[in-house]
Design a protein around this nucleic acid. Structure first.
Lengths: 103, 103
DNA sequence: ATTTCATATGAAACTATATTCATATGACTT
DNA sequence: AAGTCATATGAATATAGTTTCATATGAAAT
């Protein structure tokens, strides 16, 4: 494995929109248009985000007519998110920057 | 949990130096100076990196005289890295950008 | 209390990443 | 093959993150 593999993977998720899309796709697969409308985010922005996620196989898609239906690679991502949830519960008191300084 | 928690966590590891430090601390705890010397990276750069990792409790330290001995929060990080290893083995053929396009 | 060594901090300069908008492609339909 | 709808792409600009360097802090020793 290359030295940079982790960093590339983490970079991919180091972005609020991409994380939002991941969360949304936890529930069910969606087309680009659906993602765009539901999140109220411009189409090309969503496309760029999906291309990035796809480049690390965090999402995949199947063509369905004109649409592309994107789905989450749950096998990898769900356990990682679960570990982070547990981490923040264990190590972060309500007022740390990580847990959301502002709140 | 805040919407941004994941993104903050991932951002923290979305950096080659911080990932390198994490890898190095897998083996054993080290002082700032040791990290700096072993990785041949300037001290203040290492300090900034450690401050960032500390802000998400990815590392912790104990004071030892003038030194700070930093250690990895293995409980969270090791399983996450393991999941990513498995992910890249499963989903990445040798030539994808993620696995290290160049190689 | 001054010096030394280890580490942290701040801010400017530099670099990388994201957003935007105009346009291209690709799959269907007529 | 022309038109339409869905999505992708490229490139300029905008924003965010990193590096660097000078200096500050803090712990121990003299």
């Amino acid at each position: 494995m290359l030295k940079s593999t982790y960093h590339v993977f983490f970079s991919n998720l180091a972005n609020p929109l991409r994380v939002e899309i991941v969360s949304q796709l936890k529930e069910k697969p969606r087309s680009v248009g659906e993602i765009s409308r539901e999140l109220k985010v411009e189409q090309s922005k969503v496309s760029h985000a999906l291309a990035s996620l796809k480049s690390c196989n965090i999402v995949d898609f199947k063509q369905k007519g004109k649409q592309r239906i994107y789905s989450l690679n749950k096998k990898t991502i769900l356990p990682i998110l679960k570990l982070i949830d547990k981490h923040s519960k264990t190590y972060c008191s309500g007022n740390c920057k990580f847990c959301g300084g502002g709140k």
